[in-house]
């Protein structure tokens, strides 16, 4: 089914009746590319241009610095802990919200959006208010020698908060646009609940899930404001990549700062590779057993 649709799409390029006239396609593509060049390509180019200003050796040396390596490690840990919990939540929440109707749904969706609209600085601040020494739990935590804020747990918590809506927000409109006919059909034919989800729903939302994970991951690694408030900025211990970039920049090591920043830009390119491989694999598996739809 999917493959067929892909082929269909490919045919459509040659001016079949479902596509636009050639000049419209060219115009739209040109405008979109122009916009992207202006707002995305130019900044990206600037990052790499400045990262490589002092040459390859300086670039690699900047990445091998121990403080930078520890920042990379902390960032990876944070992302690995954050993404799965938010992925699980996203799928479950999207199921509840998109497949059923109940009163207060818009309200619930808006609550899920909330972390987007909270200023990152404030998202960090709320954890300071709760876990800080002057906050609700601070004295108790100190008495029991538990460190949350200005340590790894605080950074993870703030990141979970900031990346909380991504997967859910990606899936809700997608699953809503698909309706629930296919699932109902599967159930009528005797499939179980989980079976229905994995064999009917999941194949339909897999791109959404992937996008959600990519976004969630990218933001988890790139978050600056919230993490900055709860990190304490201890060199080699509680600095993530974005904080390390800020430090280097403030030390006037502009090339090194952009070198480290370019890692995060490369991340976007790596996710592309992951996406392409996943796309190819899923297509492969779909060809063999035939379509469920």
């Amino acid at each position: 089914m999917n493959v067929a649709a892909n082929m269909n799409r490919t045919n459509g390029k040659n001016g079949s009746n479902v596509s636009e006239p050639a000049w419209v396609r060219v115009l739209l593509t040109a405008v979109a590319l122009g916009f992207i060049a202006l707002f995305l390509l130019l900044p990206l180019g600037a990052v790499f241009a400045q990262a490589l200003e002092k040459g390859w050796d300086a670039y690699l040396a900047a990445l091998k610095e121990p403080d930078t390596l520890s920042a990379i490690r902390l960032t990876l840990i944070t992302a690995v802990l954050c993404v799965p919990v938010n992925l699980l939540f996203g799928i479950i929440a999207a199921w509840a919200i998109a497949k059923f109707s109940f009163p207060g749904k818009s309200f619930l969706v808006t609550l899920i959006d909330l972390p987007f609209s909270v200023s990152p600085v404030v998202s960090g601040l709320i954890y300071v208010l709760i876990f800080g020494l002057q906050g609700w739990l601070g004295p108790w935590l100190q008495a029991h020698d538990i460190k949350i804020i200005f340590a790894v747990p605080g950074i993870v918590l703030a990141t979970v908060f900031v990346t909380f809506p991504f997967v859910a927000r990606e899936l809700i409109p997608l699953m809503e646009s698909q309706g629930r006919d296919e699932e109902e059909a599967a159930l009528t034919l005797g499939a179980g609940g989980l079976q229905t989800f994995f064999r009917v729903t999941f194949p339909n939302i897999k791109w959404g899930v992937l996008y959600g994970v990519i976004l969630c991951n990218a933001r988890a690694m790139g978050e600056f404001g919230a993490v900055s408030v709860v990190s304490g900025h201890v060199r080699g211990a509680t600095n993530t990549i974005p904080l390390q970039v800020e430090i280097l920049y403030n030390e006037y090591s502009y090339a090194a700062a952009f070198a480290v920043a370019s890692l995060l830009a490369l991340l976007a390119l790596v996710t592309l590779a992951v996406k392409s491989v996943a796309e190819w694999k899923i297509n492969q598996t779909l060809v063999t057993p035939g379509s469920e739809r």
Binding site: G132, L133, Q134, G138, I149, F150, G232, H233
Partner: peptide, 10 residues
């Protein structure tokens, strides 16, 4: 930085 110490940065 002072605020971080007030809030528990050791």
């Amino acid at each position: 930085q002072a605020r971080a110490v007030i809030d528990g940065l050791e």
